[in-house]
Nucleic acid binder design. Structure first.
Lengths: 157, 157
DNA sequence: CGGTATCCCATTTGATACTG
DNA sequence: CAGTATCAAATGGGATACCG
C-alpha cells in the first residue's frame, strides 16, 4: 500500500511535513544552511545513498525550496541554493536543534553553539509571540479554527 | 537495506529527527498537544493504521516524550500524556505550522490561527534570540563547533 | 476500549556500477 | 563532478481480523 499523503490534510503542520518530513530531508537542509551547494559535497558529508540524495534534491527543487543553478559552463555544473522559501525553514531547523541540545546532548554539551552577531552573545533560540515578544508556551496559546481546519491546542494538554 | 540511523550522528538536529522524524510522528504530537490522549482517538482523528500508531506511541513512550498512564482500573485503561520533554517539542510543531501557513495556505488563509492569551492578540510564532529578543536570522548567526561537531551555518548560504 | 497479530506488497533504501 | 541505472533486501504501511 502506498503511504498516506499529508498534502490534502487541512493542516499546515501536515502540509509542511509532506515537503520536508521524509527521512534525510531536513539533514539535507542542514547542510544547505551550512553552505553546502554541490551534489558530491552533500553526499560526502551526509553519507546518504546517491539515488536517495538525487530524489531529495529533486523534490526540494520541485517545491521551490532549493534552486538548481548553473555555475560553470564547460563542463556544465549545477549547484543547489536556498530560495527565500528555503531560508524560511530556518526556524524549523533551529527548533529541532534546540530540542536536541536540551534532551540528547551528553555531559560535554551541545555539539554546536550559536552566536548571534547582532548582539554578540552566545544564544539559544526561543519561540516567541509576534505581538508581545514573550515566549510562546502551549498552555498560553489558544487555537482558532478557520473553516474546516482542525483545532490545534484546543484543550488542556 | 536497513535505513541509516541518525542516533550516532554528533548533531542535535539529527538526533532529534531520530526520535520524531518518522512519518506520522509529528502528527501524533500535534494531536497530543491538542489534548488527545487515547489510542482510538488518535487513530480516528489521524486515520493512521493501528499497528503504525501503536509503534509510534510506543517509540514516543520509550523516548520519554509521552507517558502511558493508567486512568481507570476496571477494566484497565491507559492514556498517553505529554511529559515535559514532550511539551518541549512545541517550538518544533509551531515552526512547522508557521512555515505551512506561509507557504502552503490558499487564499482563504491558514486553517488555524493562534491567540496568545497573555497579550490577547492573534499571533504568529517568531524565532528569537534568547539574549536580545530580536528575531534570529540565518545570516546573522554564526555557529561554533564544540568537539567534533560539524558546523552549522558556518559559511554564507 | 486499547491494543496485538498477521498478511502482503509497494516503496524505500543502500550498494554498486556506469556515464558524459 | 554530477548525476543515472540497476538490483536485492528490508521495511514501512495499510487492511483486516482478533482478543481480553
Amino acid at each position: 500500500m502506498r503511504r498516506t499523503s499529508f498534502a490534502d490534510m487541512n493542516c499546515s503542520v501536515a502540509r509542511t511535513l509532506e515537503v520536508v518530513g521524509e527521512w534525510w530531508t531536513m539533514l539535507v537542509m542542514r547542510e544547505a544552511f551550512s553552505g553546502v551547494r554541490r551534489f558530491d559535497e552533500f553526499q560526502g558529508r551526509l553519507g546518504i545513498a546517491r539515488n536517495v540524495l538525487a530524489a531529495r534534491l529533486q523534490r526540494l527543487v520541485d517545491f521551490g525550496i532549493l534552486e538548481r543553478r548553473l555555475y560553470q559552463e564547460r563542463p556544465e555544473r549545477y549547484e543547489y541554493r536556498l530560495t527565500e522559501k528555503g531560508f524560511d525553514l530556518y526556524p524549523v531547523l533551529l527548533s529541532l536543534m534546540r530540542w536536541g541540545d536540551r534532551w540528547t546532548a551528553g555531559p560535554e554539551g551541545p555539539p554546536v553553539r550559536l552566536v548571534h552577531q547582532n548582539c554578540g552573545h552566545e544564544a539559544t533560540s526561543v519561540l516567541s509571540c509576534s505581538e508581545c515578544g514573550e515566549e510562546l508556551k502551549p498552555r498560553e496559546v489558544r487555537a482558532l479554527m478557520s473553516g474546516t481546519g482542525r483545532p490545534l491546542l484546543d484543550r488542556e494538554a
